Simulated assay, not measured.
Amino acid sequence: MKIWIKRLALLVLALILAGLAVCAYIMHSAKDSVPVLNYHQINDRDENALTVHTDQFEAQMKYLADNGYHTITPEEMIAAWDNGTALPDKPVIITFDDGYADNYRCAFPILQKYNLRGTIFLISDFIGTYPNYLTWAQVDEMQESGLIDFESHTLSHEQLDSTSPEETWNQLDGSKKALEWHLHKEVNFLAYPCGSYDEELQQMVKKAGYKGAFTVNFGLADKGENHYILDRVPIFGCTNHTLMRFKMRMNYAPIFAPLARLHKDMYESGHTFIARFIPTP
């Protein structure tokens, strides 16, 4: 009996060591990848999966500043990859989708406080139109600060893999031209509305003149990845955005991202019981 217990203990230990070795290999393989953080709303009013409270957001930004992270833009990331130049140590991209008014009221002052740069993907027809979205004056002020870059989230947030080719082109090309006219700069990147895309859409994005496009797929942006389906680290999906959860999702994305995909696949295929046991921060 004692022999079997020893053998079982050795087997468990071997499995643990093998798991740690696999995790170490995965983390080492991703050492040159870039975490692209994905936010939406930053406020203390809403209690939904897209909102991070202001104090939680500030704690996350303070963590980045205190731990030597360097904020870059999508343009700088792609340029470094294409030209073979080095990125700064511990690069990170902070992105916000949609262009909510609280990005100006709540997020922008915190980014200023810690001298961190961000990128906001704008729904161009919504700017200056709806009260919950940014105004062009706010956009101009943030752009002039040198801390905020603006890119495209289409004209009106249509799910582009289900629209007609004519409407898809209108959303891509129209938003790019409208933003370039307002911002007086090139707009080279897109965030897919609802994170939805297919092969045909990727080709249209490229044809419209964009250099890359971002999904909401959990993972790090990697040089070897298709530039038109770049992964991000979603900082949403629950109403409890603790600093520990933030650290785990950002620092260990190469490990947790495959588990998150497995959890989603299990859940969508009806295997909810199994999905409960898959760790996904």
Rank of each mutant, 00 (worst) to 15 (best):
N83I: 06
A80N: 10
P88A: 15
H70A: 06
L64S: 07
L87H: 11
N67Y: 15
D82S: 15
A79I: 09
Y69A: 04
E58M: 01
T73A: 05
L64V: 11
P88M: 14
D82A: 15
M61H: 04
D82T: 12
H70P: 00
T85A: 12
L64A: 09
G84I: 08
K90I: 14
M77S: 04
D66T: 08
T73L: 03
H70I: 06
Y63F: 08
A80W: 08
K90D: 12
Y63A: 02
A86P: 00
I78V: 13
T73D: 03
T71V: 04
L64F: 14
W81H: 10
A79N: 13
D89A: 15
P74S: 10
K90E: 12
W81D: 06
D89E: 15
N67W: 14
N83C: 08
I78Q: 07
A65M: 01
Y69N: 02
D82H: 13
T85R: 11
D89G: 15
I72Y: 02
K62A: 10
E75C: 06
G68Y: 12
E58I: 00
G84R: 06
I78D: 06
A65I: 00
E58D: 02
Y63D: 00
P74M: 04
P74I: 03
G68S: 15
W81G: 11
H70Y: 06
D82W: 13
G68D: 12
I72T: 06
Y63T: 03
Y63M: 01
I78W: 10
A59R: 08
G68N: 14
T85N: 12
T71K: 00
G68L: 10
N67A: 15
A86T: 09
A59W: 05
A86H: 13
N83E: 12
D89K: 14
A65H: 02
Y69L: 04
Q60M: 05
N83P: 01
G84V: 09
A59M: 06
A59F: 08
P74E: 05
E58F: 00
G84M: 05
T71A: 05
I72R: 02
A80T: 13
A80K: 10
L64P: 01
T73Y: 03
D66E: 09
T73P: 00
G84W: 08
A79Y: 08
L87P: 02
N67C: 14
F57S: 05
E76A: 11
T85Q: 11
Y69G: 00
Y69D: 01
N83V: 09
M77T: 04
G84C: 07
A86I: 06
Q60H: 10
